[in-house]
Design a protein around this nucleic acid. Structure first.
Lengths: 345, 345
DNA sequence: CTGAAAGCGCTAACAC
DNA sequence: GTGTTAGCGCTTTCAG
């Protein structure tokens, strides 16, 4: 391990001088400075960040806590935080709670969850992080909050009880509204919806947007045209089996997988998507761009959530008064081929 | 910030004693010890890991470098490394190169890539990591290796030129062999294959396995029955359009997405999967379990790759002589419903 | 059983 | 310009 001290010896100066030179603080003749830099290079000097930070008393690091890194939206958000941090010269440390595998997906906000969380935060604090981004594995209200935290925290893709801390999520309602509007503009009036489970935040919000679009266009909301799936492709298929005979000309599936189920139903029943029946999805999963015809859907602003969180966090770290509110970022509407004009008279 | 010193003051002992007690080293009367522990608790003492490590001169940390965290297999591998580390009391620090977004996916092993890599490694070394796991975004031979590295490194999901360092990948060939065997056992002889691009490691390996199975069963390999896709669903569809008329009774798609394309082709052409035509995929993507009939596929041992890497790395850190070879972990065959008996005479 | 002292690698005042 | 000193928070002899 090459240290500053060793370089000092080799170049016959003091450690302080080496430090100054290596940090561009001047304080040495150009000749000496070059010599120092060269020796550092030659000896493969790598500054010891631990020592540096201990001395400087600030870590320039923020912690990212993920509920589960393997859940599909999480990595993109982490990526967004990471990118923003890199741009701002911040470092990250990652703490993955692995809730899925740990609890077999049966852990919705329990005390046990909080214990884990507290341990995680403690750990981050040990690392002297200056702030924390907490990334949920799906959007919902968090009941168990850190029992003790001494640095700012912001929530991504979930939001804390009582809005005690700022949170960044995306705007489900608006995106669902937009998608439904798109269908209405193409002349559709009998628009079926395939929801997710009723206890899902996403379902509720998307439902609101769907209903608002109907309302604003004077279309009676027909509960018959509402089916509940479980986000799976097969549940989308099953819903289509009910919806199509009921006379819908368009189906808004609350996620892409269920939309694929509708596609399959149509293929089996010789219905042509966009012509005989229009379909919209949600999430912009890989498959949505790739199916035929390509699926109109809403892209989630995952990267942006990460970026925004980082921005909120850094301003909190810089002492800005915390505004503990929920920021809703718009989804991006991806209009592709699956919605055609309504041909029914 | 509560430090050991402050606790020492409050409890009228020396910092050394506090340190001893808090680290369970004994060296204090039970009364004193309890008092110290209680004050630590009361003052919310959080040990400063930076100081601890600076002093102890080992970080107990390994670095994880990901080529791109957002590529679908990466998070699972990270998760595996993470889990293994937790079990061994190691910490991780994550370095994400974000190759995809940075280079717009046009970066296949260039000098620029290496510069980034070197910077990344330097950074890890600054953090005093004791070893590094490098996770590729897809399996291939890496040409540009770290120019200087002072700690052990092991590669996951890719392998270094000249096998300079150990690597852990999964066994494409074997899995493809098994999948093909499954079809043969069900009586199929005319088995089409939909490959990925020919320059892909995965394509080559899976092709080998496919051909070996044919060979061992005395089935002539018919190049007509081979189509090349680009891993996308639509390319699977297109391949099916060629393969089915050519008289195959089964199709082995080299990934699940292309298999879905085959499904779509069958739906459109009133062919029943498993009955009229059998299909296999690869990767065990979410959709494979969820389509109808469910898709027989190969599950990648991603977690296990992470775990194995960690094990290899720690033994290298413990001074074990490095065996620089490629470890191939078996995939898990998921036999579901998409392969039926061959009914053609 | 307890404490004083030294030092991990680095930096910031302040002398010279 | 350059060096000396002190100290970040912690642990580890070693002496009492």
């Amino acid at each position: 391990m090459t240290t500053i001290k060793k370089i000092a010896e080799c170049t016959h100066v003091s450690a302080a001088t080496v430090s100054n030179v290596l940090n561009g603080k001047g304080g040495a003749s150009e000749a000496k400075a070059r010599e120092i830099r060269e020796t550092a290079e030659r000896l493969h000097y790598t500054p010891n960040l631990l020592a540096k930070r201990l001395k400087n008393q600030h870590s320039n690091t923020i912690g990212i806590i993920t509920e589960d890194l393997t859940v599909f939206n999480t990595p993109e958000i982490v990526d967004g935080v990471d990118a923003a941090c890199e741009a701002m010269g911040l470092e990250i440390i990652l703490g993955n709670m692995r809730l899925y595998k740990r609890y077999n997906n049966d852990f919705t906000d329990t005390q046990r969850h909080q214990q884990l969380l507290d341990k995680m935060i403690e750990h981050m604090l040990s690392h002297q992080v200056e702030g924390i981004v907490y990334i949920g594995y799906h959007c919902r209200k968090l009941v168990y909050l850190p029992s003790r935290i001494t640095v700012p925290i912001v929530y991504a893709y979930c939001y804390p009880l009582n809005q005690k801390y700022p949170a960044v999520i995306y705007d489900d309602e608006k995106a669902a509204y937009d998608l439904t509007m798109l269908m209405i503009q193409k002349g559709h009036r009998q628009i079926g919806a395939i929801c997710g489970p009723l206890d899902s935040f996403h379902t509720l919000e998307r439902l609101k947007g769907y209903q608002r679009a109907l309302y604003e266009n004077g279309i009676l909301f027909n509960p018959q045209l509402l089916q509940y799936g479980d986000w799976s492709r097969s549940s989308g298929f099953a819903a289509a089996e009910l919806l199509v005979p009921a006379g819908v000309t368009a189906i808004f599936a609350f996620n892409d997988e269920m939309a694929c189920g509708v596609y399959e139903y149509c293929a089996r029943n010789s219905l042509q998507i966009a012509k005989d029946i229009s379909v919209a999805g949600f999430d912009n999963r890989d498959i949505s761009a790739d199916c035929t015809p390509s699926l109109t859907t809403a892209k989630l602003p995952l990267e942006e959530i990460g970026q925004t969180c980082t921005r909120l966090l850094t301003s909190a770290i810089d002492g800005e008064p915390p505004k503990s509110e929920i920021t809703r970022l718009p989804c991006i509407l991806l209009e592709r081929e699956s919605i055609g004009p309504c041909t029914t008279v």
